[in-house]
Design a protein around this nucleic acid. Structure first.
Length: 317
RNA sequence: CGCGGGGUAGAGCAGUUCGGUAGCUCGUCGGGCUCAUAACCCGGAGGUCAUGUGGUUCAAAUCCCAUCCCCGCAA
């Protein structure tokens, strides 16, 4: 079966890798164009491009899928199946309808929950105990296609975005292989997505990253882990500097006597902050202009006066 | 040449504005106190202050010049 793979970030690599390892005939990879990234705007290729080239798979980076050029490419490659994993662009009907066996997508949630751009982050932020991956036949809607297979993955109390990202990427790759095999065997069954339980996971914006210490501790902790290690939840120090939270832990759920955001003195140097209904420990932080460091080390150098408060008096920066 | 922060003992920082041979909080090593301790007390080791064998100066971590490296933002 001639398979065309479409994907861009790290998340898609295990899936592509699994297809190749399974001996599938991947005729090509379509990925996003190289983009200026990082300090100095260095033109950077998408991870999938790098991986594909290492494996000797031809790569295309069309600016758009909606022109004759791409139509011609489709004809030339003549895929019987298109596999899409975190590609980052909407596929037009002309592409969706091309392959005989359709377009299969691997999505990082248990559909119909968390359709959309940031399912893993939103799920963690919401404090879910479980998530998963789902394969589906794509249609023109946003993650609304008929479901094929799914695999649940438990979420540990301290798992962060990176943990879930990695385990879902692996689970997704595994599920993809099973889906493709089932497709070839003719045993694949498609299910319409239920109307009940639909939810959307909107793209993460910087407003989503601002911490509010009047929230319950658990909620603050969930927010931090859902956004770690990227893009990272943040607050402001009393002097208006950015302080990002890389790793945290629920320190106590005793009702605090101090106000939200207030730094709690601790004998053993831990970085403790009051939340709505308890105390959170900031285990690893990232100060503006610095690298990440243990909360203890950060406090050692900063020496906040008694009663200092995080996130208060937002000084517009 | 996108914007900005920074390179000072193992760690996090101060000191640089107003040049005068290095300090804080920890860690570490040794000793003491204690039923005990992440507590306390005493003492010690550990730094060519990123690099240039650069410039200015009687004197530079501190001023000037060049280079290397790290990081945050943004994308």
């Amino acid at each position: 079966m001639r398979i065309l793979f479409m994907g861009s970030p790290d998340f898609a690599i295990p899936s592509l890798s699994a297809l190749l390892d399974a001996g599938e005939n991947v005729v090509g990879v379509v990925t996003q164009t190289d983009k200026p990234k990082g300090r100095g705007y260095v033109l950077t290729p998408p991870p999938v491009k790098v991986f594909a080239q290492e494996r000797g798979i031809p790569v295309w980076q069309p600016r758009t899928l909606r022109d004759e050029q791409f139509d011609a490419l489709l004809k030339q490659l003549d895929p019987e199946l298109i596999v899409v994993v975190a590609f980052g662009k909407i596929l037009p009907a002309s592409v969706l309808s091309y392959p005989r066996f359709g377009c299969i997508n691997v999505h990082g949630s248990l559909l119909p929950k968390y359709r959309g751009a940031a399912p893993m982050q939103r799920c963690l932020i919401d404090g879910c105990a479980e998530t998963g991956v789902t394969t589906m036949f794509m249609d023109e809607g946003l993650d609304t296609g008929d479901m094929l297979l799914s695999q649940a993955v438990p979420i540990g109390p301290d798992d962060n975005f990176e943990d879930i990202h990695d385990s879902l990427a692996a689970a997704g790759a595994d599920l993809l292989i099973r889906t493709v095999q089932s497709l070839k065997a003719g045993t694949l069954v498609r299910h319409k997505q239920p109307e009940e339980g639909v939810s959307y996971a909107a793209k993460i914006e910087s407003a989503d990253c601002l911490l509010d210490f009047s929230w319950p501790v658990q909620r603050v902790h969930d927010r931090i882990r859902g956004l770690s290690p990227f893009p990272l939840a943040f607050t402001r120090t009393p002097d208006g500097k950015l302080l990002k939270a890389v790793r945290s832990s629920v320190y106590s759920k005793d009702t605090p006597t101090r106000g939200p955001g207030e730094i709690v003195p601790s004998q053993d140097g831990r970085f403790l902050v009051c939340c709505g209904d308890g105390v959170l420990e900031l285990v690893t932080v990232l100060p503006e202009g610095k690298g990440r460091m243990p909360g203890k080390d950060y406090l050692r150098g900063r020496k906040f006066p008694e009663g200092s408060r995080l996130g208060a008096g937002e000084q517009n920066g």
